[in-house]
């Protein structure tokens, strides 16, 4: 059976919702971009960008404008069609994955029931992994179609890395899914009413987090870019708007992963100690938790050096995967035993 998607809103609400999520969600990217550069600066005892606008707040705008007004070029060795397509795949999958992050339960807005999320699919995590799997084509095709050895090496590493860590990432989520008995992300959140899954699924949480660093190509697993050895990795030959797309997708992926971690492990829009704020607070709770995870992403990037390729592989297959499997197994046994 194909996954069922929960529709109960009229079609025009769906369109408005899509526009709002698109508008608000994509505004988060420049914010994260700026936050990363400012925080990275503070982690290294410097200010970070502070020239454009007050406290450097206009820096992302300047960056994006600069990139978009640049010349579109491509190497003569590249394959034009794929070269243009690859950044589009990257950005499209990131945006699509963003659609299922729930920012709140269904609310009554002017007498209409509206779910504060793009769509509530009955296959929640699988949807994310599906688009994560397609997103890897963005990197792979981008690196391959460039016709450059650095891009090619970066893409190959990216392929191997994403495949290795996707397994552990998925297995880490299985524990939660077994406990919650549902794949719907809103269902997983409501199942955390008693206790957030970060406590009973602590190992799952840590494994998911580490695998997510690898999945989003962030330090210390940024081997696809590895600017010290591969110039820019898969995006070496990209410039202007296409590079901006890759950059945008990378940060949107960070936001999406923060959203997934928030939803699955940190109780989504729920607050601890039985506090029940009015419904309009929910999105802000989710955004706050997401910003904490994003801060962690930046913090780790400021701290840990990049892994060597063989370390990356042996860590993924020999440490993370057995741990994730063990976590799933123990969770399954405990759930069966207590039922």
């Amino acid at each position: 059976m194909i996954a069922t998607v929960g529709y109960f809103e009229p079609w025009w609400i769906q369109i408005i919702k899509a526009i709002v999520i698109f508008a608000v969600g994509l505004q988060l990217v420049p914010v994260v971009l700026l936050a990363e550069r400012k925080l990275l600066g503070r982690f290294q005892s410097r200010y970070g960008p502070n020239r454009v606008g007050p406290y450097g707040a206009m820096q992302p705008l300047a960056d994006i404008l600069k990139l978009l007004t640049k010349e579109q070029f491509r190497p003569t060795t590249s394959i034009g069609f794929l070269f243009a397509l690859a950044p589009i795949i990257s950005i499209l999958t990131a945006v699509a994955a963003f659609a299922i992050i729930p920012f709140g339960n269904t609310q009554d807005i002017f007498g209409t029931k509206v779910g504060l999320y793009g769509i509530d699919v009955s296959i929640g995590p699988l949807y994310v992994f599906a688009f994560g799997g397609v997103a890897f084509y963005g990197i792979m095709l981008g690196g391959w179609s460039s016709g450059s050895k650095y891009s090619f090496l970066g893409a190959m590493r990216g392929a191997a890395q994403l495949i290795s860590y996707e397994v552990s990432q998925g297995l880490a989520l299985v524990g939660v899914v077994i406990t919650a008995q549902t794949l719907s992300l809103t269902g997983i959140v409501t199942a955390q009413k008693g206790m957030w899954y970060v406590v009973p699924q602590l190992f799952g949480f840590l494994i998911f987090l580490v695998a997510s660093f690898a999945e989003t190509n962030r330090a210390p697993f940024d081997l696809t870019e590895a600017d010290a050895e591969l110039v820019g990795g898969y995006n070496t030959e990209f410039g202007g708007g296409r590079f901006a797309s890759y950059y945008f997708a990378e940060y949107l992926n960070v936001i999406v992963v923060s959203g997934i971690v928030t939803t699955v492990f940190l109780g989504g829009w729920l607050l601890p100690f039985g506090i029940h704020p009015p419904g309009w607070v929910d999105p802000f709770v989710v955004l706050f938790k997401m910003s904490l995870i994003t801060f962690l992403f930046i913090w780790v990037r400021a701290t840990l050096p990049r892994l060597r390729y063989d370390q990356l592989m042996s860590f993924g297959w020999k440490v993370l995967l057995p741990l994730a499997t063990l976590n799933t197994l123990i969770t399954a046994i405990v759930v069966v035993a207590t039922h």
Binding site: Q44, S45, R46, W299, V300, T303
Partner: peptide
């Protein structure tokens, strides 16, 4: 890893040493 994170967080709490 935790020790490294604590070190960078210590830098985070300090004022920057940049000369403007």
């Amino acid at each position: 890893t935790v020790r490294g994170m604590a070190t960078t967080f210590g830098r985070f709490r300090e004022t920057p040493v940049t000369v403007q």
